[in-house]
Amino acid sequence: MTDAFAAEWLKLRTARSTWYCLGVVALIAGLMALPAWYSARLWDGLPPARRASMEVSSLPEQACWAAYLVMGVLGVLAITSEYSTGMIRATLTAVPRRRTALVAKAGVVAVVALAAGEATGFTVLAAARLIIGDRPIHGQETHLGRILMSGVVVMVFALVGLSVGALLRSTAGAIVVVAGLWHIVPVLVHLLPAPWSDRFGSLMPAALVEEIAGSGGQNSIYGAGLPPAAAVAVLVAYVVVPLGAAGIALERRDVP
């Protein structure tokens, strides 16, 4: 197992797409300085009476939200690039225990995505603090738990990407699914009639962050929300169900 893990680590490290994805995440984190700077300027220009009504979404969480998609793509490419090149045959000839190979791949993808997610959240937090200073802008209160959870959801997206990639064996198809879960499904859920938009909305990955870490006094766009324990269970299901399905599919199907 450690050998398979080490091999997958080497593979992820030597794939160009890994560095492109991490580069894009770093770029997103860096660009968050712009809204931080703009918010500070706006705040300074507003008369004190109107400052109370100014609100800016949490920048670290915004950065993580963008990283969901990028790391989801990294998870997809970690497996579909092997299918598209045929490298999967060499991989599974070297490690014929297919579940071991998948778990090893999931392990390294999870570690990289979690590290990238947490780094994004906390780097942007530090940058935003530095730029915004002590201006008490609504939405920019430091909420460590939510930033931490946002990083965890980045990892969840990467694992969903990996699983869907293993199931579909197609880069484009899997990216469509990940992008759907990232933004399209939440938007569609929002359009559902009254109780259902809240019920399904509370299951969306981004909503889980607030449900698990507490909303910090903000009202969620996703509605009432689940209790933390249930939200944790849903988050775990986001990883376990697709990954389990991918494991079974990989075990049963012939390698193309």
Partner: peptide, 21 residues
């Protein structure tokens, strides 16, 4: 032809070798 083109020959072989110690 079934190799990931972005990797060097050494890295490609190291990935396979590492899994088998």
């Amino acid at each position: 032809s079934a190799v990931y083109g972005g990797r060097t020959a050494v890295d490609h072989l190291r990935c396979l070798a590492r899994a088998n110690r």
